Amino acid sequence: MNIRRTYRIPENRQVVLNKLIKLQWVNFFFRLSIVAAIYFAMGNSQAMKAAWLEDILTLGPPLAFLIAMHIQKRPPDKSYPYGYHRVNVIAFLFTACALFALGLFLLVDSTTSLLEAKPTSIGAETFYGHTLWAGWVMIAALVYSAIPPFILGRMQEKLARHAHEKTVMADAKISKADWMTAVASVIGILGVGMGLWWADAAAALIIGLDVTRDGYTNIREAVGDLMDRRPHSSETGKPEELPALLEQQLMALDWVERASVRLREEGNVLSGEAFVEPACDKDLTSNIVQAQHLVENTDWRISEVVIMPVTDLTRASD
């Protein structure tokens, strides 16, 4: 028996989502300003070029989240009878692929520079008749590029945990990679200034390794969601115990002999099936309705669970 209901976002979560939307707009415009600052200060630095290209790609995740939030509000229709919740997974996968592609580019580009032993030249700039080493301009731009991601990333992570938003959680990791990239680039530029020609490319290589690792981890997480993997915590990445909790609650009902629950993630909500072996057939329909209310009120993320009475639970849940 499938009792379809319209999914309603809890009021407290809606408040968090509104904050996340505002935060992602702020994040997007700060990243735009960082892209401009790094571009004008880039020069011939490999680390600066790596940081600039990374900043360009980081414009995508907040936009993907904002678009997904708009599409997600659409009600179920004939073409999409299960709603549009999984648009968040698509945004999450887009974010992960962009991050992974960037990491691979940085790895190849920086490794090539190290193998070819190309020294990085950082020239000088003239300001109002005074000559200034261009490295200081680069460092100033990098320091600016580190501050907003450091602050916004912590805010993203905190709100994403409350709202169970994996796209924003992944974007928080990107923000962390941003400020780490800036710090590594500063070290590389200072190394070049001290005569260590390899420091700039080495810093870019370290950045590439970190970005590639984060990209791969997030791709694996997004693909798992698309393949109907059991729910995983957005904080720890470990499987959740919610299916076992629902089974215990169902078996606590007088009319249920045994129960087995399967859940999957559809964006930031959960759906699945609950197979129950009735102890008796009396008032079965009303009992199923009771079980439906019990399941859907256990966790705000549960959008729909099909309650299916079976005679042989072992065969039904295989």
Rank of each mutant, 00 (worst) to 15 (best):
N2Y: 01
R5S: 14
Y7I: 03
R8S: 09
R8M: 04
R8P: 05
P10C: 03
P10Q: 02
N12Y: 12
Q14F: 08
V16H: 09
L17C: 03
N18R: 08
K19E: 15
K19C: 00
W25Q: 00
V26M: 14
F28G: 01
I34P: 09
A36S: 05
A36Y: 11
F40D: 01
A41N: 08
M42R: 13
S45H: 05
Q46G: 00
A47W: 13
A47T: 10
A51D: 14
I56C: 13
T58P: 03
T58E: 11
A64H: 07
F65C: 03
L66K: 00
L66T: 04
I67T: 09
M69K: 13
K73C: 00
R74W: 13
P75C: 01
P75G: 10
H85Y: 12
N88F: 04
F92P: 00
C97P: 06
F105P: 06
L106Q: 15
L106D: 07
L106K: 03
V108N: 11
V108T: 08
T112L: 10
E125L: 08
G129V: 08
H130F: 15
T131V: 13
W136K: 07
M138Y: 02
A140G: 03
A140V: 11
L142P: 08
L142W: 07
L142Y: 10
V143Y: 14
I147R: 07
P148Y: 08
P149L: 14
L152F: 11
M155V: 09
A160H: 04
H162N: 13
T167C: 11
T167S: 13
M169G: 12
M169F: 09
A170T: 11
K173T: 09
D178N: 15
W179N: 01
S185R: 02
V186D: 13
L190M: 14
L190F: 10
G191D: 11
G193H: 14
W198I: 01
W198P: 05
A199N: 12
D200C: 03
A204I: 03
L205H: 09
Y216N: 00
Y216A: 00
Y216V: 01
N218S: 15
V223R: 06
G224Y: 06
R230A: 14
P243W: 09
A244T: 13
E247F: 01
L250C: 04
M251T: 13
A252I: 02
D254G: 10
V256M: 08
V256P: 09
A259C: 02
S260Y: 12
E273W: 04
A274P: 07
F275Q: 02
F275C: 00
P278G: 11
P278L: 02
L284T: 06
V289T: 09
A291I: 05
V295L: 15
V295N: 10
T298C: 10
R301E: 03
S303N: 10
S303L: 08
V305Y: 05
V306S: 10
P309Y: 02
L313N: 06
A316Q: 04
